[in-house]
Simulated assay, not measured.
Amino acid sequence: MRTEVRWRLCWENELQLSDHVELAEFFRKTYGPTGAFNAKPFEGSRSWAGARPELRAIAYDSSGVAAHMGLLRRFIKISEVDQLVAELGLYGVRPDLEGLGIAHSIHVMLPVLQELGVPFAFGTVRHALQKHVERFGRYGPVTVLSGVTLRSTLPDARLDLPPTRIDDALVIVLPVGRSMCDWPAGPIIDRNGPEL
């Protein structure tokens, strides 16, 4: 039987300490099975891993947080072009609700993306999640790009690591206020900040 969830859209400054504590626990339990290192950023009451989102879509059910997606407006550089995007990330679904899917999160976020007037939503995922992200094409035209190099800064400056991280992830682009033909072509995307 499918669990009933209710979605809450909230700006970051609307969250209370109790919200951060609950979200941090959710992320530790959700990301922990993929590797202890993946749960580490969420120690204590920290409910973000890299860049802090400005808006969150949080699904709740009778057991607490069921799913989460964050949004952050930013300029990314695609080759030499500065492009405004709403970066979507910090995505998670509680393991017992795997079928809830990223498509539901996008569906909840879509009206907000349109209200914000951003030309594109942008995000990255591991190659293993390609089939999952292709499914949310039913909510709008979604393009999955591969072969793009992504550069991001680390969330914290560390003496033992270089300040920039390079990834070969899948890039997801969802046209919101513009057409996909307006997306700049280029093999390199610079976030000029940490990943959401």
Rank of each mutant, 00 (worst) to 15 (best):
W7L: 07
R8E: 14
R8Q: 14
E12H: 06
E12D: 09
E12W: 02
N13W: 09
Q16C: 05
S18F: 07
H20R: 08
V21C: 11
E22D: 14
F26H: 00
K29L: 12
T30E: 03
G35V: 00
F37K: 10
N38P: 00
F42K: 02
G50L: 05
A51G: 11
E54K: 04
I58Q: 02
A59C: 00
D61M: 01
R74Y: 10
R74C: 08
I76V: 10
I78L: 05
S79R: 13
S79D: 10
L84E: 13
L84Q: 11
L84R: 13
V85Q: 07
R94F: 02
R94E: 09
D96T: 13
I102F: 13
A103L: 01
H107N: 15
L113A: 02
L116C: 01
L116M: 14
V118A: 03
P119T: 01
F120V: 00
F122C: 06
F122P: 00
V125K: 00
L129H: 15
R135M: 09
Y139S: 13
Y139P: 04
P141D: 13
V142L: 12
L150T: 10
T153D: 09
D160Y: 12
P162F: 03
P162R: 03
R165P: 03
V173C: 02
V173N: 05
P175C: 01
R178Y: 15
R178W: 07
D182Q: 14
D190Y: 12
N192F: 13
E195N: 15
